[in-house]
Amino acid sequence: MQNNKKQFLTGHEVVVQAALDAGAESMFGYPITPTCEILSGWFESGKKCLQTEDEIAAGFGVCGAVLAGEKSFTASSGPGHILLQDSFSMAEAMRLPVVLIVGQRGGPSSGTVIYSQQEVILACFGGNGEGMRLVYSPSNLSELYLLTRRAFNEAWKYRYPAIVLTDGYTLKIRQNVDFDQFKKIENIPPISLIPENKIVHWPNIYTAEEELNIVLENTKNDFENIAKEIVSFESKEIEDAEILLIAHGIVGAVTKIAVEELRKQNIKVGLFRPITLRPFPKQELDKICGWKKIKKIVVVESSFGQLARIVRDQLAPEIDASFDYLQKPGLGIEPEEVIEFVKNIKI
């Protein structure tokens, strides 16, 4: 596939290709829109594929496969994403390199099968306890490919479970995709997590609270140490910006267009787009907002403020820029709407 310069692909096809190129050997899944075609596409690839009875079994299937030293993944959405949190918590506890592709749909419950950005908090913090995970938010099909490759690589390199948090629009869209730019990505090979012919006692339950506490502290310290190697973001026009727009995923791409247009109208606006939602590019955002010029932060998203919660939580308390929000839960946002909103802001 990578020999041809441009292909006309859906997001589903991009994910399948990225997983194949990443060296994934198996997928476990239960079909749910908008991720069904990842499962059927993987099945058609001829690789190992198991349609399980539900997402709980799918998630633990992936845990089993990676324990056996095989790159494996699943894909789901909405209510299925909730069920996967059980196995994902175990993956956090045991630091298993499982990979999950989430196609956000509207909620709560079955909601719509189409689109939202309402699974951010679930993807970033959906486990019980306080496990650590990697969460990536692609803004277009090229990034969907790239971040799926990164999810496999970084999950196996750093031994944390990873989620590629995308949405129904990005998965269902069919678009020109250029794979040439990704030829140089190298794969981190899988390793056998349990030595062959050895009996290993590997608990994910502890008798004493002190025992668990040590594991939690170590996991957190490791995560903080690797964060600087993983965090990624895109910024635009921030040098003299007075208004900073923060958005992720496809809304981040839309907001970028709005920034370009607003700049033509001499409005001093910039963009900060987190590409990793966890670890969050906190230091970089603090640095940008710490410049005295930023007077207003506007968080734009297709939810009631899930990204906004993370931003407010992560931003250094001494930063005194005021907040505003453009929120359209379960709905797409067009560049014109962002432009209109920003033009009506009074600083």
């Binding site: 006309f8 829109t33 099968v113 869209i173 069919r174 678009q175 020109n176």
Partner: peptide
């Protein structure tokens, strides 16, 4: 929709096609 967008792609144009329907 597929025919229209496929023809555009074959012609070397930039194209995006997104279906939108319920259950």
């Amino acid at each position: 929709a597929e025919v229209i967008s496929r023809a555009a792609f074959e012609k070397g144009l930039t194209v995006s096609f997104i279906p939108n329907y319920g259950l």
